[in-house]
């Protein structure tokens, strides 16, 4: 087991299977299937992201550097949370970007629903993203600790 410590953006305790994107996550391109076509697994639809393309994101521990692309990104994340199709956790190696940050804050302030919950930790470091692999079990704790098993 290896332990990483980051900054808490949205606190919580959760254990989930890792899916890893080494490139920036294009939120709109990745979640459009989940929002538009009723894909409850939130299968990643971003053709430009070979790490994640066609993989399930809902309920997973999504490990990424940052999000990129359209400024719909925050509201896309907000909608994914409202519809219960969000990852169980989003774990950023870098400081969170303005789009993902907005989505997390909007969901937290405006959605009062346990099903919409998503744990978010950022600034976990480059080593975290190099170490973690698809399928690993990740336990995220309230203090921003991430245990990789």
């Amino acid at each position: 087991m290896k332990v990483f410590k980051g900054r808490i953006v949205a606190p919580g305790n959760v254990t989930a299977e890792a899916v890893v994107s080494h490139a920036g996550l294009n939120t709109l391109a990745s979640f459009q299937g989940a929002l538009q076509f009723g894909d409850k697994k939130a299968t990643c639809g971003d053709q430009n992201n070979p790490d994640l393309y066609n993989k399930q994101m809902a309920g997973k521990a999504l490990c990424l550097p940052q999000t990129i692309g359209s400024t719909t990104g925050g509201l896309v994340l907000y909608c994914a949370c409202a519809m219960g199709r969000q990852p169980a956790a989003m774990l950023f190696s870098m400081p969170i970007d303005s789009l993902a940050g907005a989505g997390v804050v909007i969901a937290d302030v405006w959605l009062n629903d346990e099903k919409a919950k998503m744990v978010v930790v950022d600034s976990l470091g480059e080593e975290f993203l190099n170490y973690v692999k698809d399928g690993m079990s990740l336990t995220v704790k309230e203090d921003g600790t991430v245990e990789v098993n």
Partner: peptide, 26 residues
């Protein structure tokens, strides 16, 4: 503002000041 292409234009070509805000935050 939001809209990535408009924000980058406003900042770069017009010299206005705007973060890459998300929809709803806008």
């Amino acid at each position: 503002w939001a809209e990535s292409s408009a924000v980058v234009y406003a900042n770069s070509v017009l010299g206005a000041r705007c973060n890459r805000n998300s929809g709803i935050i806008d």
